[in-house]
Nucleic acid binder design. Structure first.
Lengths: 338, 338
DNA sequence: TGTGCGACCGTAAACGTTTACGATACTATG
DNA sequence: CATAGTATCGTAAACGTTTACGGTCGCACA
C-alpha cells in the first residue's frame, strides 16, 4: 500500500505539499500539482480513509439504512436499487460514496443506528421504512447527524423528508373507482406500523366520505407485505359478503399473490373486483395489467441526495433554497384491472 | 462525542487501561474492568472507528459489493436481502458489520473496487454478479484482501467461492422434461457475460446430447434480465417454427413477463409450452404455478460468511476445514408449468 | 533482608492524513 | 537598496485509538 509518505519521498517533496496538491488547495505551484497528480496515478495512490477521516472528522460516506431479511419493508424487487442509483449520481459529484447500512432482522434498528452513528461511520444518513413513531429521528437529531428520511413520521424533528404521495394516490384511485360506479371499495393495508398505511387509509376514508360512502371495517384488509400475504388477503376478499367490488392497495409487493388468491377463490381480478395498486416490474405483465401508480425511482433518489446535501454543512452552499419537505407525486398507469 | 480520553478522565485512570479493559485484554484487574464497562455504558462511549482502524489496520467491516441501477444482474433485491441476513448472523458473532458497497451503474466496477480497497474501507469483500472473466478477482488477490465470490469465474485466483448448482439444475430440468416426452427443448440465457449462463447452457447441451437430442441454435433465447426482457422473449418463442415444446430458464427475474409474452402470442404457458425456472416470490402465484428450483438464501448467506471468515487471518482459527468451494444445491418445487 | 515474580497499570509511540503556522525566495514598489 | 507583499513549500501538531514497553507494588521464598 503506497501512502502519502511514499508518494512524497518519490517526488522528493514534503507530505504537506502532496496533500495540498491532491486536495486542490490554493497555495501550490501548478507544475508541482501536475507532478503530484501524475505520480499519484502512477503509483496507484489512494488516500487512506481512516487516516483522513480521523483528521478531518468526516468520512466521505453517506449511509442508507435498511433492514435485511426476507420480509422487507413494503418495497419489492428493484425499488432500492433504482433509488440508490439516483442518489449516487448526485453524491459522486461531491466525491461522496453511498453505502447501504444493513441492519439485520434480529437486531434492533435503534440500537444498530446508535452504534453506527457513534462509531462515526457515515457523515449523513438516509432513513427508509419510517415508522409512524420512529425513535431514530430523535437519535440522529440529538447527535446532530445530517439526515433525511424517505417517508414521513409523527416523530419529525425538523429534518428534510421526501415521501411518496400516498394521499394523492388514495384520492385519484378512489375518485376513479367511484366515477366508474363502484360503491363498495376496500383497501389493503400492510401489516406493521409504517406510516404510509395510516396516511393512505385516512385519505381513502375522507374521499369516500366526500361521496357519501363509507369504508366498511370488514373491507379494510391487513396483509403481510409479501406475495403470500397477498394470496391470503385475496382469499379473504373473496369470502366477504358483501364483497367489495373494488380494491385499492398501497403496497406493490403482494399483487401477484393477490391476483392468484382471488382467482383460486373464483373471483376474477379486474372483472369481478377492480384493482388499483402500485407499480412493480410485474404490474404490466399481469393479466389483466394492473392499473397502478408509478414514479421515477431514479429521480426520487436524486432528490433525496440533493435534499440531504442541503443539510450537510460542508455541501449545503450548493443546494440552498431546497424545499425541506417533498411529497413526491405519482402518475397513474391505466391498466385493465380497474 | 465522548472519546476514550473523557472516559479515562472520568474514571481517573489512563486511556491505556481503558482500552485494554474494553478490548478484553488479560492484564487488567477484574474490578477495574467492571468499572470501565459500566462507565462506558453510562457515558454512551463507542470507540471511534477511524481512530481504531487507523491504528489496527482493520476496519471491522465486510463489504458486499453490488451494482445498483434498474437493470441489475439477474437477482432481485429480495434475493440479496435474504442472503444479507444470513451473512450477518454469522458476522455479528465476531463483531463484524456488513455493508453493501454500491457501485453505481455508470461507474466501472473494477475502478470502484480499486478505489474502495485502496481506501481501506473493508477488511474483506464479498463479490457477486461474477462475470465469466472477472478482473476483480485478480485485483483483490494482488492487494491480498480476503474475499469470496458468489459465483464462479474463469479468472479464479484460488479464493473460496460458492455458486448455485446451475449445472445440476440444468440436468434435473432437462431430464424431467425429456422424461415427460419433450424433444424440442429451448433455453433462456440472460444477456451479459455472467458466468452462470455458460455453465447452464453447456450442461443443457450435454444432457440433451446424452439423450440423442440437440439444442437448436434458434431455441437458445437471449433475454434482458427484466420482466420486459421476459415478455420480449416470450413473443419470440411463440414465433419460432418449430416452436420449442418446453423452456428452461436460469433467471428468476423475467418469468412474469415471459408468461405474459407467451399468452399475448396465443401460447399457453404450461400447456403449449412447458416451463421450468428459478424460484422467485411470484413463482408459486403464477398461473400455472412455476415449476422451479429453490434454495435457502439465508443458509447460503451463512455459508458465504463462514467461508469468508475462513480466509480472514484474524478469524480463520474458528473456521478451519471449510471446503473452499461449494456448489450449492437447489431443490425442485413441482408446479404445474412443466 | 534481598531477590524474583506476577499482577496491574501508566507512558508514549504509532497508524495516515490534514492544516495552521512559519520559513524562504522572489517580485514589485517606493 | 530597503521593504512589503506574494507565491510556494516545509514543519509539526492533531485527530482517537491500540499496544509495546517499562515501572510500581505486593507477595512469596530463600
Amino acid at each position: 500500500m503506497t501512502g502519502i509518505r511514499q508518494l512524497a519521498d518519490y517526488l522528493d517533496i514534503s507530505i504537506g505539499t502532496v496533500s495540498r496538491a491532491l486536495n486542490g488547495k490554493a497555495d501550490v505551484n501548478a507544475e508541482t500539482r501536475r507532478r503530484v497528480l501524475e505520480a499519484a496515478e502512477k503509483l496507484g495512490y489512494v488516500p487512506n480513509q481512516s487516516g483522513r477521516s480521523l483528521r478531518k472528522g468526516s468520512t466521505g460516506v453517506v449511509g442508507f439504512m435498511m433492514q435485511t431479511g426476507p420480509e422487507i419493508t413494503s418495497q419489492g424487487d428493484a425499488f432500492f436499487m433504482s433509488v440508490f442509483d439516483g442518489v449516487q449520481t448526485v453524491l459522486s459529484r461531491h466525491k461522496l460514496d453511498l453505502v447501504a447500512l444493513l441492519c439485520s432482522s434480529n437486531e434492533d434498528p435503534y440500537a444498530y443506528l446508535q452504534r453506527t452513528v457513534a462509531r462515526g461511520f457515515a457523515d449523513a444518513i438516509i432513513l427508509s421504512a419510517t415508522r409512524r413513531n420512529d425513535a431514530r429521528f430523535e437519535l440522529l437529531h440529538r447527535h446532530d447527524i445530517p439526515f433525511i428520511s424517505l417517508g414521513r413520521s409523527l416523530t419529525d424533528v425538523g429534518q428534510p423528508w421526501i415521501d411518496l404521495d400516498f394521499e394523492g394516490m388514495a384520492e385519484v384511485a378512489i375518485e376513479r373507482l367511484v366515477k366508474a360506479g363502484h360503491r363498495n371499495i376496500g383497501i389493503i393495508w400492510p401489516h406493521g406500523d409504517l406510516n404510509l398505511g395510516y396516511l393512505f387509509a385516512d385519505r381513502c376514508r375522507e374521499v369516500l366520505a366526500k361521496h357519501g360512502l363509507v369504508l366498511r371495517e370488514d373491507h379494510v384488509f391487513r396483509a403481510k407485505p409479501s406475495e403470500a400475504g397477498g394470496y391470503a388477503v385475496g382469499q379473504e376478499i373473496a369470502s366477504r359478503s358483501p364483497r367489495p367490488s373494488a380494491i385499492v392497495l398501497v403496497n406493490e409487493i403482494l399483487v401477484t399473490g393477490l391476483y392468484k388468491g382471488l382467482e383460486d377463490a373464483g373471483v376474477k381480478p379486474g372483472k369481478d373486483v377492480a384493482i388499483v395498486g402500485r407499480y412493480s416490474p410485474q404490474a404490466q405483465f399481469l393479466s389483466p395489467a394492473l392499473t397502478c401508480f408509478t414514479l421515477s425511482l431514479r429521480d426520487l433518489g436524486i432528490s433525496l441526495a440533493e435534499h440531504l446535501l442541503s443539510v450537510m454543512p460542508a455541501y449545503q452552499s450548493d443546494y440552498v433554497g431546497q424545499t425541506p419537505r417533498v411529497i413526491w407525486p405519482m402518475t397513474l398507469i391505466e391498466g385493465a384491472s380497474g
